[in-house]
Simulated scan of single mutants.
Amino acid sequence: MPNQIPLRMDDIYVPAKRKKTLEAERVDALAHDILENGQTTPIRVREGKGRYVLLEGLHRLEAMRALGEERIVVYVTQARLH
């Protein structure tokens, strides 16, 4: 099971390829849901080159940022080795 930890959002690197998939409407909807229910699903990151790299949860990350949060709960997972 991956480690679940709170992490500063500024410490999470979002790859440019992933940023292109951002939809403002989804961010707004998630922000409203988080206000009502809290963050129910952590985002997933991996450690890489001295930073955390976003794997899953861009819209949740941006919704929390829009709400003015500085930290987010993340799962730290291991990168796959092929």
Rank of each mutant, 00 (worst) to 15 (best):
residue 2 P to I: 01
residue 72 I to D: 11
residue 43 I to K: 01
residue 24 A to S: 08
residue 45 V to N: 04
residue 74 V to G: 00
residue 65 R to A: 13
residue 66 A to K: 15
residue 54 L to T: 10
residue 56 E to C: 08
residue 69 E to H: 07
residue 61 L to H: 08
residue 25 E to A: 15
residue 66 A to M: 14
residue 18 R to M: 14
residue 7 L to M: 07
residue 5 I to W: 02
residue 67 L to Y: 04
residue 58 L to F: 06
residue 70 E to D: 12
residue 11 D to C: 02
residue 25 E to R: 15
residue 11 D to E: 09
residue 13 Y to F: 09
residue 46 R to L: 05
residue 28 D to R: 04
residue 45 V to I: 09
residue 9 M to Q: 07
residue 29 A to D: 11
residue 59 H to Y: 12
residue 59 H to S: 09
residue 27 V to Y: 02
residue 25 E to V: 11
residue 80 R to V: 14
residue 3 N to P: 01
residue 64 M to P: 14
residue 17 K to C: 13
residue 79 A to L: 11
residue 1 M to C: 09
residue 37 N to E: 14
residue 27 V to D: 09
residue 46 R to H: 13
residue 55 L to R: 13
residue 49 K to R: 06
residue 43 I to G: 00
residue 55 L to F: 05
residue 8 R to F: 08
residue 2 P to K: 00
residue 5 I to A: 01
residue 73 V to Y: 10
residue 25 E to T: 14
residue 55 L to T: 14
residue 45 V to S: 03
residue 78 Q to Y: 04
residue 80 R to N: 12
residue 76 V to Q: 10
residue 5 I to K: 02
residue 38 G to M: 02
residue 32 H to D: 15
residue 75 Y to S: 00
residue 76 V to M: 07
residue 47 E to H: 03
residue 46 R to V: 15
residue 41 T to R: 03
residue 28 D to W: 03
residue 34 I to P: 00
residue 2 P to Q: 01
residue 46 R to I: 14
residue 68 G to W: 09
residue 5 I to N: 01
residue 73 V to H: 06
residue 31 A to V: 08
residue 61 L to V: 09
residue 38 G to T: 10
residue 30 L to C: 01
residue 3 N to H: 02
residue 26 R to K: 15
residue 1 M to I: 12
residue 79 A to D: 15
residue 62 E to Y: 03
residue 66 A to F: 15
residue 79 A to G: 14
residue 74 V to Q: 07
residue 14 V to F: 05
residue 48 G to M: 12
residue 14 V to P: 00
residue 45 V to G: 03
residue 22 L to T: 06
residue 53 V to N: 02
residue 16 A to V: 06
residue 58 L to H: 07
residue 38 G to V: 02
residue 48 G to A: 12
residue 33 D to C: 05
residue 52 Y to M: 07
residue 44 R to D: 10
residue 23 E to F: 06
residue 10 D to C: 04
residue 75 Y to W: 08
residue 42 P to H: 13
residue 60 R to Q: 12
residue 11 D to T: 01
residue 20 K to R: 10
residue 18 R to T: 10
residue 5 I to Y: 07
residue 20 K to C: 05
residue 68 G to C: 03
residue 21 T to L: 07
residue 72 I to E: 10
residue 57 G to M: 10
residue 36 E to D: 15
residue 27 V to R: 01
residue 70 E to H: 04
residue 57 G to S: 05
residue 9 M to V: 06
residue 4 Q to F: 04
residue 81 L to A: 05
